[in-house]
Design a protein around this nucleic acid. Sequence first.
DNA 1: GATGAATGAGCTTTCATTCAT
DNA 2: TATGAATGAAAGCTCATTCAT
Lengths: 203, 203, 203, 203
Amino acid sequence: MVREQLRAIARRERILEAALAVFARRGYRDAAMDEIAVEAETSKGGLYFHFPNKQSLFFTLLDRMADLLMSRAEQAVAAERDPARQIDAALAVVLRTFSSHRSLARLFLVDALGAGPEAHLKLMEIHRRFADLIACHLEAAIAAGALPPLDTRLASMAWFGAINEVVTNWVLAGEPERLEDAYPQLRVFLRRSVGLPESPEDA
Amino acid sequence: MVREQLRAIARRERILEAALAVFARRGYRDAAMDEIAVEAETSKGGLYFHFPNKQSLFFTLLDRMADLLMSRAEQAVAAERDPARQIDAALAVVLRTFSSHRSLARLFLVDALGAGPEAHLKLMEIHRRFADLIACHLEAAIAAGALPPLDTRLASMAWFGAINEVVTNWVLAGEPERLEDAYPQLRVFLRRSVGLPESPEDA
Amino acid sequence: MVREQLRAIARRERILEAALAVFARRGYRDAAMDEIAVEAETSKGGLYFHFPNKQSLFFTLLDRMADLLMSRAEQAVAAERDPARQIDAALAVVLRTFSSHRSLARLFLVDALGAGPEAHLKLMEIHRRFADLIACHLEAAIAAGALPPLDTRLASMAWFGAINEVVTNWVLAGEPERLEDAYPQLRVFLRRSVGLPESPEDA
Amino acid sequence: MVREQLRAIARRERILEAALAVFARRGYRDAAMDEIAVEAETSKGGLYFHFPNKQSLFFTLLDRMADLLMSRAEQAVAAERDPARQIDAALAVVLRTFSSHRSLARLFLVDALGAGPEAHLKLMEIHRRFADLIACHLEAAIAAGALPPLDTRLASMAWFGAINEVVTNWVLAGEPERLEDAYPQLRVFLRRSVGLPESPEDA
DNA sequence: GATGAATGAGCTTTCATTCAT
DNA sequence: TATGAATGAAAGCTCATTCAT
């Protein structure tokens, strides 16, 4: 029965991959459960065995993306000692992650807003998680004297918004061609905005 | 026959108001033409007499909001001489405008992304208009020596994103209670981000 | 007030022409009163002043086509003395008339069947008129001894059907390129079918 | 699961029967999918599970009627050796088949022309199939010396038209009361039209 | 006479979800 | 577990017709 459990997990995984592909192709509303089932090489009933409804499928993907981003950012931060460098590392890893998962970025930043009111709540919660992460490190940097005191709540939100807009523009308008190319300027912008000196080093 | 034209225009206006209300209540996709018709005290046929389809109704509202914001911001800017103050004035008026048109803000910043691919294009075009406005004034400020040189393209995008996120948070999470309360901190954030000194004066 | 009457008649005529064009372009069901109004350079109200509804517009056109065909056929018949030649003349004129009014032919033979049950009645009545005309001349020919006795009721119906099919094929499939090219063979077919010798002369 | 498939096929059949009834009752355009669903004791969704759209439902019925007629006619022909008798047999079976499927006859000869341009193409193709069948046997009869040479292309078309008109008249005007009553006269007409002697025997 | 804004019943089609097998 | 036939509530949109001006 362990084998069966493994098979079930594998099927679940295949469904999630298929869902991601279809959501990315069509957007949340225009993605049909039928198409996801076909893409996952299973039946509609199979989908509903593993997920109670379309929304939960979508939310699972959102959570995955959030977890992926959060853990990568935390890893990058943990690898640095200097608060200022931590920020650079986090920004770099976030841009790199979005850059190599354009579909997920689109889902995360664009389609999620079209998935109805519950999705809005979910999304704001995710925004909050990121903002809290940023705020937490800003506060640490302030405590360490690396930063002047400031409203970390608003700053983190504004940071998130700034990054969000740059990535969204890349997703929808294709500019810049490589998302990572926005890194140097965005880094300068964010550092300045909280009063960090523009150190010459780079990630 | 002039009276008839006036009545038709009034009806068109009533439809737009109703559409705004229903879009704000339900989001773009879940807003039914039926409901808009009822809200406008018209028939469905009446809707389609004045607007060829649901999307055009939505886009008309988007354009209105964009025009409203743009013209108010430009007015505010024109009323000031000092580049630094111009920026403050524009930010203040944008926040004030969103603050008093919460439904339109929601439409503009949240629902528009859920209205399908064509809406994305439209929206990116609007984002561009605003970013261009910001960039234009940043460049003027740089030319006037009030600002150090910087990548105005990215800065304006990041500014737009930062403001966007703060307003979105207010729309969806209700924080801060009064959107204008975010002004002082946001002002500091934006000024710092482009290297403007935090002057003590306020709009 | 005579001038006004003339103007009204002219307008009515313009509407009929427009209706013919639109019906021919779209078929009865897909022809919109709106489009007819535009084509007639008048308003929808104008249409309804001159015709009580869409169907009457259509029926008027049908009657016109029927009258046109009937009178031309009768003229052609009247110009000949010999019963056998009368038949040739009628056939020739019918083919010639359809040939130069393809839109009307289409309306008459194809679209009319898609215009609902009342149209079916109307159409059968028209078929009957033609069949009666044919039957009447067949009987005269029999009485004159030019033809052996036969069931003129069925023969006329079958003649009408045969001609109908040839014309319909020309309308829908474009074969033969020139409808008149079907005349010689069709003439032979029809003459034989009632026992007329294939005389060498032609109309 | 075999039982399920059987049930599905039965349901499909029930839908086709219902569609036939409703199309015959209302004509193609005025037949509502709603009404077909009710008649088939199914849901509208069920209809669309088995047929992608209204037109395909209609076309399936058309093809059935065409196949039914063709195969019966071919059987009847195969059962006779003498070319002249083959023709009689085919005519008899066609009239008999229409006679016992009045609804299908109506669909086939009347409504199909009102079902839009695609239906016209489909219909002309079916006409062509029948005309080809007729032409083929006429040619065989000519080759066998049973018939003088003639334009089989036109003759077959005219035959089809003649039969068509007689049947249509029966469908729409109810004359003659029993369609088979038209057989003797129609037989004489068709035989004569291609130069066959009126043999005394009958099917 | 003429206009065109307004009506509203009606249409086909979609799709998340259920459930007997 | 898995299947896929079946459901049914909506949805967007059309268009013949009416009627106040």
